[in-house]
Write a protein that binds this DNA or RNA. Structure first.
Lengths: 112, 112
DNA sequence: TGTAAATACATCGTATAACGATATATTGTT
DNA sequence: AACAATATATCGTTATACGATGTATTTACA
């Protein structure tokens, strides 16, 4: 599990990316996906997940639809047009950020 | 300039890395170094820099020495033994984190 | 059949990191 | 003389995230 310090600020980008690749996903599904695809290193807690999803809905980056599964109501999220643009932009920014960090953290080869 | 969201949580790692590669540095020097080596994309503001440095000194990750430069007092920071270990550990964690993020943000190749 | 685990959503209060604004003083440049 | 750059510092605010906790349904299994 990575330090929460590190993960902060990446959640939104990760969620946007997942919704970019999948037509729609629900909260629990998102958290499970991240856990499984990160070897358990990324565990997005509910206390963070749902507020982020609600905020993104408020900002019109995602739209939500309630789907009845038996007696249970599941909330599916999908990207809006603005969300698609935001996803592209955030992912691009993160990639540039990684390139910069890679340079800065590059091992410093010193002569013996 | 990357969104402050993204930078959060990386400052400490960056500072530890700089002090790992340089025998000693002072605050202003650190901020200038990051700015220059990131194409201006990382501008660590004073309001963030000094509190971080003070906290790291308090945690005994760095030691500080005052050096008189003419009439001015410059505060040099260098890694303690604990700081050297922390630097290695933080840099390693960040590298693993980047590998995970790279996988998760990998372009999703779809057939046309 | 009972119960524990997994699924699924939610919110409140707290913690803390980072930042903008602001302040002080020296040194170099025009 | 005035401005930019160097150099450090702190205060108050904001944003984000998180732990704890709560509710309810569904599945597994003993």
């Amino acid at each position: 599990m990575y330090s929460s310090q590190l993960l902060k600020g990446t959640y939104q980008t990760l969620i946007l990316k997942l919704l970019q690749d999948h037509p729609r996903m629900y909260g629990y599904e998102i958290s499970q996906y991240l856990k499984e695809h990160s070897d358990g290193e990324i565990q997005l807690p509910e206390g963070s997940l749902y507020p982020i999803l609600h905020k993104m809905a408020e900002e019109k980056l995602v739209k939500m639809e309630r789907v009845h599964i038996g007696r249970r109501v599941r909330r599916y999220y999908s990207l809006t047009t603005a969300g698609v643009a935001e996803a592209t932009s955030k992912i691009d920014e993160f990639n540039r950020f990684m390139a910069t960090m890679k340079l800065l953290l590059k091992p410093n080869l010193k002569p013996l």
